[in-house]
Design a protein around this nucleic acid. Structure first.
Lengths: 219, 219
DNA sequence: GGGGACGACGTAACACTGTTACGTCGGTTG
DNA sequence: CAACCGACGTAACAGTGTTACGTCGTCCCC
C-alpha cells in the first residue's frame, strides 16, 4: 500500500465493493449464519479466493461489514445531529436509532452484539466506529452548553447510548416480553423520556430545587 | 417421555450432565467459536453421536446452555430478591447482575446476545428464562407497594432491566470506550443510581430538596 | 426363563465451512 | 521489450454439523 497501486482496465475496488455489498445483502436477508465465503463469492460473481485477495479472510470481511455498518448507521443519525436541538432532539435521535437498528437487526448485532463468533474488530475499525459516538457527544455538548447544564458530556452521552442500546438490543434478540410492536414502541418512548429527563434536567428546575452548582444529577 | 423411562445400570442423565457441564466449561474458557460437537463430546468422554442422543443437535445443546445459564444467573440474583428491600436494593441487584455477566461473558452473550448464529430458543426455553425476569418484577412490585409508588411494575422492571443490560452488553462487547475498569464501574454505578432515582422517585425525597439521599453527583 | 423391543451408544460417511498452495493471465514498470 | 506482480480461478486441506447404520445391554411381556 506504500507504493502507488497498479490499476487494471477497470478500477479494482469495483469488485471489492461488489463483494462487500453482496455480503451486506446476504447478512441482511439471511442472517449471520448464512454469511459464507462461498455464498458471498457466488453472489458477487467471483471465486472464493477473490474475497481473500480483497479482505484477507472472513475476519477482514466481517470487519469491513462492521465499518460499513457504522458508516450507514452514522448517516442515518446525521441529520439528527445536524438539526438545531430543541425539546424533542434526543427523542428523535432515539427513534431514528431504534428505527435503523430494527430495520438492520443482523447488521446491528454484528456491530454491537458479537454475532460472528471469534470476530474482534481491529483498533482501526474501532476508531472508525467511535466516530458515530463522537457525533452523539458533540450533540450532547452543544445541548448542554445552550441549556447551561453542568457535567461531563462524554459520560452523559454514554448513559444515553447505553440506555437506548439496552432497549434495542433486548428487542432485537427477542428477550423483551412485549405483546406487540405497539407495546415495544410505547416502552421505548417512555424509557427515552425518562432517560432524557433524568440526564438533562431543565436548568430552571435545577436552579430552583438546589442552591449549589453540582445540583445537576449528572456531573 | 409418556411411558416410564427405561434405566440402564447408571442413571442415564449422568452422561447428559457430563456433556452439558463440558459444554458450559468450553464456552466459558474458549468462547462460542470453540463450542464444537466434537470438542464437547471429547471433553465429556463420549462420541459425537452421544451429544445427539441427549440434545438432538447443536441447537438443542445451545438451548440447554441457554436454560442452564438463566438458572445460574437467577441463582446469583436470588438473595437480592429475597432480601428485604432497602435504599440500596436495586443498586445491589445491579452490581450482582453486572458481576455475574462480566464473570460469564460468553454465557451471557449466548443468553442475550445471539452469540451462536441461527440459534433461536424454543418457547419452552424462553418461558424458563422469563422466570428470572419474574423475580425482578416481584421485587419491583414489593418495593412499589411499600413505598406507595404508582405505575406498572412490569414496565418499570423492564426499564430497569433494559438499562442494566445496556451497560453490561456494551461493556462485554468492548464497545464502551472506557479507559479502565474503574471508569466502567463508576459509570455503571452512576447510571444505576440515575435509573433507580428516575424509576422509583422516593416520596420522601420528592418532597425534600435534591440534596438528600440520592443527590450525590453522577457522572 | 426366553424373545422381542428399544434406548444408548460408536463408526464412518455425507455435505459444507474457512483457508491455502499453485498456476495463469494481463497490465504496469524498468 | 522483458520482468514483475497483483488479480484472479482450480483444487485441495482440515474441521464443522449431521446422519445412516450397526451393536450392545437392559427392560418388558409372554
Amino acid at each position: 500500500m506504500s507504493r502507488p497501486a497498479r490499476r487494471k482496465v477497470s478500477d479494482g475496488t469495483a469488485t471489492r465493493n461488489a463483494i462487500l455489498s453482496a455480503a451486506v445483502d446476504i447478512l441482511h436477508r439471511e442472517g449471520a449464519g448464512a454469511l459464507t465465503m462461498r455464498s458471498v463469492a457466488a453472489a458477487a460473481g467471483c471465486s472464493t479466493t477473490g474475497v481473500y485477495t480483497w479482505f484477507g479472510g472472513k475476519n477482514g470481511l466481517v470487519e469491513a461489514i462492521f465499518v460499513d455498518g457504522f458508516n450507514r448507521f452514522g448517516d442515518a443519525l446525521l441529520e439528527d445531529h445536524a438539526s438545531p436541538p430543541d425539546d424533542r432532539h434526543f427523542a428523535r435521535l432515539g427513534e431514528d436509532y431504534r428505527a435503523w437498528a430494527l430495520a438492520n437487526p443482523t447488521h446491528y448485532m454484528v456491530m454491537f452484539g458479537g454475532a460472528v463468533p471469534d470476530f474482534v474488530p481491529s483498533d482501526e475499525a474501532r476508531i472508525a466506529a467511535v466516530a458515530t459516538f463522537d457525533h452523539l457527544v458533540d450533540s450532547m455538548r452543544r445541548v448542554m452548553a445552550e441549556q447551561h447544564i453542568a457535567g461531563n458530556p462524554v459520560d452523559i452521552a454514554h448513559h444515553l447510548w447505553a440506555g437506548i442500546h439496552g432497549y434495542v438490543s433486548l428487542e432485537i434478540t427477542g428477550m423483551d416480553l412485549a405483546d406487540d410492536e405497539a407495546m415495544r414502541a410505547r416502552r421505548f418512548r417512555n424509557g427515552m423520556a425518562l432517560l432524557v429527563r433524568g440526564l438533562l434536567p431543565s436548568p430552571s428546575t435545577v436552579v430552583r430545587t438546589s442552591s449549589d452548582s453540582v445540583s445537576s444529577p449528572i456531573g
